[in-house]
Amino acid sequence: MSGKLTPGRLMLMAYVYLVLIFVLAPIVVILPMAFSEPDYLTFPPEGFTFKWFGAFFGNARWMDASVFSLKIAVLTSIVTVVVGTMATYALMRGAGRLGTLFQGLLIAPIVVPHIALAVALYLFFRQTGLSGTVTGYVMAHAIIAMPFVVFTVAAALSSVDATLEDAAMSCGASRFDAFRLVTLPLILPNVLSGALFAFILSFDEPVISFFLAGIRDKTLPRMMFDNIEQNLTPVIPAIAVLLTGVSILVLVCAAVLRRMAQSRSIPAEEG
């Protein structure tokens, strides 16, 4: 397959452009609606206003939900990265049969549909009083995000030479210091991009948010779900504009981290 412009390749590219239009169109269509005057969603947008951003930032319920979701996402990202990195490190340092169990349990939340986990937690959290609490959401989101963090961290750990830790320890460093001062700096870009990924997964997570929400403590996705289901106001496109901005920012951060990871993996390969 070369880049030459044969008729076959021309047809392929035409088809691919159509698919890309299908992929992008809904996103491209909804964003300008954030600046449209009328109370309903219409395309092309009519007039120009920032009032829907005002409606979002000026409404206590939207703000409470956003802060609540941010809090959950930050904590999820911290919990997932700490718990995930500890377990992944153990896995890569000779976990044996426990490692097999770990990998099985790690994959399970990807296989089991989110609706199943959501219903199970809905029931369990009602009995234990964890419904609608930050703790409850963070545990649920950490379970969903864990595999992605572990895969990312494991990819970095497998390219770090373990003899570096040996060297540190034979110079008198403890195992923890050897990890903290030698290995951790080398895998840090992947750890951080795992944290970013966990943050996004939690912040966007709609299904568990839907079932675990109490009457008062709603996450941002749950508030959005209710708005879309009931009347679909232009606040949703306004949020879409904000979320897209954040996503692009995060993507740029992730690209920078990846570049850092690449530049750091070179000494390990030489060693």
């Binding site: 700490v82 718990v83 995930g84 500890m86 377990a87 490190y89 153990a90 896995l91 890569m92 340092r93 000779g94 976990a95 044996g96 426990l98 490692g99 770990f102 990998q103 349990l105 790690l106 399970a108 939340p109 986990l117 199970a120 937690l121 369990f124 545990m139 649920a140 950490a142 379970i143 864990m146 895969f151 494991a154 990819a155 497998s158 030479d161 373990a162 003899t163 830790e165 040996d166 195992r175």
Partner: peptide, 29 residues
């Protein structure tokens, strides 16, 4: 990718490092 490699930890060390994960997945999954 997920193969163990490098200098091995003790059994107790591994159990300790993996314990938070097992507790979390046991309790909330």
């Amino acid at each position: 990718f997920l193969q163990p490699d490098g200098r091995n930890l003790s059994k107790a060390g591994i159990l300790l490092l993996m314990a938070p994960f097992f507790l979390l997945i046991g309790f909330a999954f």
